[in-house]
């Protein structure tokens, strides 16, 4: 089954790495954004009825809206509530991990760089 992954990271290189890693995995469609708000807008308008296979890979440390704000906005948005969120960070702060547990929408917390193995495990 096709999976749709939206990657949001302000760092274009990180975005490129993530894109390249995800493209190697079969049955995944990837779109990448450096701007979280823009990503949400596109996501809202392009959402299929099959929300179960929708994933957002979200970098926590972004300058304008940080990852947590995006998480909150998605939680408050009816159409985005059932989209699964995977948090990304180059350093896993235990505090962030605790905080992630507060959102049921967040299904995982991955350390950057994204690895093929980790994503495949997640998608199963």
């Amino acid at each position: 089954m096709e999976k749709y992954v939206t990657v949001i990271d302000d760092d274009p290189i990180a975005l490129m790495v993530a894109g390249l890693v995800l493209k190697k995995i079969p049955n995944i469609k990837v779109q990448t954004f450096t701007d979280g708000i823009e990503a949400l807008q596109v996501l809202r308008s392009s959402l299929t009825s099959d929300k179960k296979n929708q994933f957002v890979f979200l970098d926590l440390n972004m300058p304008l809206y940080d990852g947590w704000e995006i998480v909150q906005q998605m939680g408050a948005d009816d159409s985005l509530q059932s989209v699964k969120i995977v948090l990304l960070s180059s350093s896993v702060d235990p505090e962030d991990q605790q905080r992630a547990k507060l959102y049921s929408q967040v299904i995982a917390f991955l350390e950057k760089p994204l690895s093929k193995d980790a994503v495949e495990k997640l998608m199963q």
Partner: peptide
């Protein structure tokens, strides 16, 4: 510092893995 260093390093590692 540690965070700002980590971000480019993880990019480097990612690129190397690719």
């Amino acid at each position: 510092t540690s965070h700002n260093l980590r971000a480019p390093i993880s990019n480097l590692i990612g690129l190397l893995q690719l």
